[in-house]
Design a protein around this nucleic acid. Sequence first.
RNA 1: GCGGGUGUGGCGGAACGGUAGACGCCGGGGACUUAAAAUCCCCUGUCCUUUGGACGUCCGGGUUCGAGUCCCGGCACCCGCACCA
Length: 847
Amino acid sequence: MTDTQPDARFDPGQADARWQRAWDEAGTFTADSNSPRPKSYVLEMFPYPSGRIHIGHVRNYTMGDVLARYKRMQGFEVLHPMGWDAFGMPAENAAMEKGVHPGGWTRQNIAAMKAQLKRIGFALDWSREIATCDPEYYGHEQALFLDLYEAGLVYRRQSEVNWDPVDMTVLANEQVIDGRGWRSGAMVERRKLDQWFLKITDFAEELLDGLGKLESWPERVRLMQENWIGKSTGLEFRFELSNGERLPVYTTRPDTIFGASFVAVAPDHPVAQGVAMNNCDAAKFIELCKRGGTTAAELETAEKLGFDTGIGARHPFTGEYLPVFIANFVLMDYGTGAIMAVPGHDQRDYDFASKYGLPIPRVIAGSIEQAGLPLAGEAEPGAKDDGGVCVNSQFLDGMRVDDAKAMVIARAENEGWGEGKTVWRLRDWGVSRQRYWGTPIPFIHCPACGVVPVPKDQLPVTLPEDVSFEVPGNPLLRHPTWKHTQCPQCGSKAERETDTLDTFVDSSWYFLRFASQPADRPFDPEEVAKWLPVEQYIGGIEHAILHLLYARFWTRALQRIGKIDFAEPFASLFTQGMVTHETYSRREDGREVFYSPDEVERRSESAVLAADGAPLEIGRVIKMSKSKKNVVDPDDIIERFGADAVRWFMLSDSPPERDLPWSESGIEGCARFTQRLWRLFGQYDADAQGRDQALTRKMHQTIAAVAADIEALSFNKAVARIYELTSAAEKAAPTAARSEAIAALMLLCAPMMPHLAEEAWHANGFEGLIADAPWPEFDPALLVEDEVTIAVQHMGKLRDTVTARKGASKDELEALALASEKVRRSLGDAPVRKIIVVPDRLVNIVS
RNA sequence: GCGGGUGUGGCGGAACGGUAGACGCCGGGGACUUAAAAUCCCCUGUCCUUUGGACGUCCGGGUUCGAGUCCCGGCACCCGCACCA
């Protein structure tokens, strides 16, 4: 090396900023959609601008960055953009707590977080930066929303919300704690409002079928979406009620119809409402059900409660009258809002029947002989693939579950009291939010013309800036002038819609806007076609269902109305794990007080509070959160260790889909490794002479393996490979082969530790930026070893290892194994009965 | 409650059904140094008295010449559950 002393240390404090500037000035990461190179679109889920970049963001974006840089080195024109999911509740909360404007607060956060991201040296095309709170962005979103409206995919209907009667505001589920408003503490009420919906259910079948083609999505995400969409086939049929009405119910298990011992309806079912009109106990019961949260988790964990309406429902086969209950575990949103309950074979029905002393007959058993077998204290599911047959079921007795289902449906259809039906769990997407900080829904309510869309040439409908959060309620609703306007159709006085869109709408098309940003349209279809679908999308598993399903829906909807010509936005998906940290706490005045890592002195087996030297309890390793104070600040650690050490830590050790436990000693080890590499890079000698076959072979193997590992996103394995080649190169004699290996290491590290790689590349006199250098080639002939180690087992237990020529025959390996003294000792006098030989791997002797 | 996942040394993890523990961290010992830092070398799953052996991948069963890996049944923890993003 020419201008660096061998013992000089790598100084990230200077190098990081220098190379970040160099990339900026050269426009290295600006994506050119007219480039002749093949295109690659690498995208990470954009962050909510909460104020500071979280270490979890750093991990997410480091993974995408390594892939983006690697793809560039492989000759791709890479689009790797970044933006801000900038609408949402925290900005309004900040406004209420600190008296700041949500817009100002958000823009300040964006500036701070952008500076943080720049310090990590991400290869991002900042020229395409988007913030969803910019009128330029949400105006186009309003236009798309109107397009979907024209296509009949948008409608209004009544829907329930959590209403806080004290704060006079709608609460999000997370703002309802034990049935009370988080701020006011008032009992939350359910209130019906007119709200906007998107017809995602129109696409249920397509969204389900499409999953099958997403081969590069994690299996578990596809499974979760499949279950969420929840296609089921069953029977919808009508009970004749003792009051003369008819009650439609839906069941997926018509084969168990003889096990029905009661009928249950949802508290908001018309039958329940009807009973409540003349029966104040029923009305009280319904009120009771409406208390408490609206979430599925709460409803399903709540104690099963029912109210006997006194109505009877006539069983279509037996003619017997079953009692009709109002029950809190029946959902109005699913099926018909009423069920036939089969306690013998459904756990919820079982719990309910046990509580109210209703019969629990068995109608499914392993065989017809087991008809009299009692149920073992819980419901037996009686799945279709375990050979269950119908029992105690008249004409169904002895039939297999599948056949019985078909038979019951056929009888119902013949006799005219029911029919086979497909039902979906998926519900339409409610997008109305009664909040200020979101995209205004571009509609006008005219007393004469009704609901009228805002003409496109009047978009965007912008948010008013002069709003106050001191008074409870929606600022848009209270604003003195904003909502008052004229009807675009008749010109008379009218009011703007004051609901804003769910922020999931914002994130349902941002990946299109990144690819193409015309001023007059949401995107240009040709430009979009060049980049989309996203080749690799990376984000948290917490988005496995909602965000990813909504984005898939939105893309398909745009395809249906001819805006784009592809159905799936993300070809490949990766869900990364969280960054975790142990917690430090102690009891003070009877409650647990947490301390942050920088207040703590961590010893090998204990931790003490630096301030007073008293011991602290080391808690479990859990997700970093402010309340547990187990957070580390990215800026802080970059300042101490440099961007490359932090990036390296994010990639090392833990597989990317699993949680990564933060540790001080881990990051220190990474920082040490940057210096170790730097010393090795300093030993590059362009004039060195001589061969080193073993090292050359190792180099080629490493180049191939690191490439494969990066493409599989197995960064921890790529890191391990780089450690191995580093050790080998350090130990090797100074030959031309060694210099070649050192240069290869610079290139292999370039996507992961770009500042260090650039610095070494430059210091050793290489031309240009390493970010622009091609990925090194490898010789496939050098990947295979010519000698292999063969494991020799006796009865499956390892006794010896022997060395053999690669590709040695079974007979040769057998002879080698039997010649081993350790094997002969283990064998003793026992006769050899069988020998299993796995070529190039092992020999197992069975005696 | 329902749906989905995870579980391997002191710690993070590696391992086409085929040598369990690659690689890193921690720890121990040594070298260099007046000393320290930095750096380098060696050791490091548990147990048994050794050359050597036994036991070991959350627990209990099973399939197989051979199971961390496949099957059945548990346990623990994590994610999601439709207005958090």
